[in-house]
Every structure is written in C-alpha cells, then in structure tokens.
Amino acid sequence: MADAGTPLLEARDLVKHYQIRKGVLGRPVGTVHAVDGISFAIPRGKTVGLVGESGSGKSTAARLVSRLIEPTSGEVRFDGQDVLAMRGKEVKALRRRMQMVFQDPFGSLNPRLTVGDIVGEPLEVHRVASGRARTDRVVEVLETVGLSGRDLHKFPHQFSGGQAQRIGIARALATNPDLIICDEAVSALDVSVQAQVLNLLKRLQRELGLSYLFIAHDLNVVRYMADELCVMYMGEIVERGDGDAVFADPQHPYTQMLLAAIPGHDPVTARAQERGVATGEVPSASAPPSGCRFHTRCPAVFDRCPTEHPPLYDAGQPGRVAACHLLDEPRQVQRA
C-alpha cells in the first residue's frame, strides 16, 4: 500500500481512440477521439467530479480507470500500483476496492434476482463472506443505505427509482471499497430523490472515508459533491480546480456556457457577459476541430484559436488551470 500522501487514484495522459471500420474487410476509415490525454488525481476521502455535455468522454474515462476497457495510451495508478500492468488475480483484487454505481438503477439490477442475491453476489465473487456471514453483511449494508433486512427477498421491480439506486449503492458498498465511481448516478431520478441520494453519498463518505469519482452533466449536482471539478469537452479536460472556485469564477468559455444553461443562474463574471453565449452543435469526435476544439462554438474566438491547441494554462489560483488562450493573452478579452 502506498503512503498517505499518494493519491488513491491517478490518471496520467489517458487516451482512448476507436477505429471506424467499413466494408467487408473492415478497413479503418477514421478514428473516434473518445478521450484525448486527460490527467487527474483523487486523494483519499475526497471527491473529483467530471462534468460536461453528453459525448464529452466522461463515462469512457470512468471505464478506463476501472479497467473495464483498455486505453490506447496513458497510465492509471491505484494506491500507487500500475493498474494497466495488473493481470488475473490482481485485477480481481482491484475490482473489490473499486466499485461502480450506474445511471439506470433498474437497468443495472438483475430483475430475476432478489435484493439479497444482488447485494450478496460481490461477496461470493470475491470470497468475502458466505452463508450466514454473507446474509449479515447484506443486511448491514442495506441498513446503511436506508433499507432493511425485510427487503432481502424482494425483487427490483418492487422498489421506487430512488430505492433501486440505494440497492445499487449497497451492492457497491458490500466489499468495503476505497473508491466508488458514480456514473450519472442521480441523473435518472426526480429532483427530490436526487437530493436524498446525494446526501446519502455524502454521509457514507464521512462515515466510511470513501473516495468518489463523480460523473454528471449537471454542474449544480457536481458542485455539491465534488472537492475538485474537471470540465470535459470532446475528450479533453478544459478546466480543472476547486469546485466552488470553478463555479464562482469560471475561466473557460465552455464552463461559462454550462453555467449559463442552469435555469436561474446568473453568469457571475464580467468576462462571461462580454464574451456572450456559445452557440452551435458539438463537432464529431471522429473529426475534431484543429487548434482549440471549442473554437467553432466560442464567442471569444480569435486568431490563435483555430490553429494552436491550448495547453492547460495557470488560472491564477492554486490548482486552477484552463485550456484557453485568453489566459495567455488576456488583452483579447477586450476585442469586439
């Protein structure tokens, strides 16, 4: 086990490309840039949020760090160990310490199994407990998420959406993991139920010392959950920093666009008001724009944007970075 100063999870320059094949022979005719060189780290007991529009690469990133799919290149380390070098029993041991909660609470639960079998299955797979010990552990985690032992013999269809998601959380907790990846875990729920599940996740983090990778398209939800926020656009992280700081003073025009889309939210910076509102559709991931990938939609575009790919510039606060040339040439904010 790594020392306490090492991040629990660290992704470095992570890339995932898919080849587009056509014809009888399946000849490659193009490449989908699903994830393109992202880096982030999750400290122990903390939450990192990934936010962005559909198709920005958030869920692909989650599947890469959990080793559900293999990256094209890059590095993933968990508790100081190279995840991509793991084989066989090492990968199985990783699964025990890194669990997932999925978007669709009913789609992720086997309708033919009882709640006891759904939550108890990871205990059998990882040989954590069996028999009476297994049942006791299942009841324990059900009670932890607000359900009870009376639910052991019920089936998923007998529960509401919020209750079904609690079952999914209980299944993730069963093996006592260190990290839980929440992939749009509340987006399918009503707003009032969202609040209940989010409060549950926060409480579990305090009580159990859990770390979360929290993925959502709703900035308000991610702001409530995340200590650090990573904003993704077309497979890249375009802004990263403290969650409250990013929400209060967004540096990238895309982040400002996401904030402006929140009903009733007033864009808080003068820069956002001067630049205007981004327009247009997201370009195809198989043909990303040259230079800054957001330049085709950005109201503040200038001559460098279509030709130079922006690095993550220092945004003036500890840990704050944004991939926008305006941070390198702030005078461009004044342009008409």
Results as ranks from 00 to 15, higher is better:
236 E>Y: 01
23 G>R: 13
216 A>K: 01
322 A>N: 02
178 D>C: 03
138 V>T: 02
14 L>C: 01
205 Q>K: 15
200 L>K: 08
245 A>Y: 00
66 S>A: 14
137 R>H: 06
102 F>Y: 08
17 H>M: 04
157 H>T: 02
154 K>L: 04
11 A>F: 12
11 A>W: 03
231 V>K: 06
316 G>D: 10
10 E>C: 00
228 E>M: 05
200 L>C: 06
64 L>V: 03
241 G>C: 04
212 Y>Q: 08
242 D>I: 02
311 P>R: 13
184 E>S: 01
178 D>A: 14
160 S>F: 15
313 Y>Q: 04
39 S>G: 05
144 T>K: 14
220 N>F: 05
245 A>L: 10
262 I>R: 05
295 H>E: 01
155 F>K: 13
101 V>T: 01
19 Q>C: 00
93 A>T: 10
36 D>F: 00
117 D>A: 13
135 T>W: 07
75 E>W: 12
201 L>R: 10
281 E>M: 10
230 C>F: 11
335 R>I: 04
28 P>A: 13
181 I>G: 01
81 Q>A: 15
213 L>R: 05
322 A>I: 09
303 D>P: 06
137 R>W: 03
93 A>W: 04
147 L>R: 12
254 Y>G: 08
246 V>D: 09
188 A>C: 02
92 K>H: 09
60 T>A: 06
12 R>M: 12
308 E>M: 12
185 A>D: 06
145 V>M: 09
336 A>F: 11
248 A>I: 09
127 R>E: 15
283 P>T: 13
326 L>P: 11
106 F>N: 08
132 R>G: 01
63 R>L: 14
268 V>S: 15
198 L>K: 10
93 A>L: 11
133 A>G: 07
94 L>S: 02
277 V>G: 00
211 S>N: 11
28 P>W: 13
248 A>Y: 01
106 F>K: 03
160 S>V: 14
223 R>I: 02
171 R>T: 13
204 L>G: 02
205 Q>M: 05
66 S>R: 09
131 G>Y: 11
332 Q>A: 15
26 G>N: 07
49 G>N: 10
295 H>S: 04
243 G>L: 00
148 S>N: 13
228 E>V: 15
115 V>R: 06
118 I>A: 04
270 A>Y: 00
316 G>Q: 09
115 V>E: 09
261 A>T: 08
329 E>S: 09
121 E>W: 05
178 D>W: 04
54 S>I: 10
307 T>G: 07
334 Q>H: 14
70 E>V: 09
37 G>L: 12
113 L>G: 00
253 P>H: 06
79 D>L: 10
172 A>H: 03
282 V>G: 11
152 L>T: 06
173 L>Q: 02
292 C>E: 06
132 R>Q: 14
146 G>Q: 11
312 L>H: 03
159 F>M: 12
233 Y>E: 03
29 V>G: 01
227 D>H: 15
332 Q>K: 14
200 L>Y: 09
136 D>E: 15
272 A>I: 04
217 H>T: 07
209 G>N: 12
109 L>R: 00
153 H>T: 07
10 E>A: 08
207 E>L: 02
230 C>G: 05
84 L>M: 09
95 R>Y: 10
202 K>A: 15
48 V>H: 03
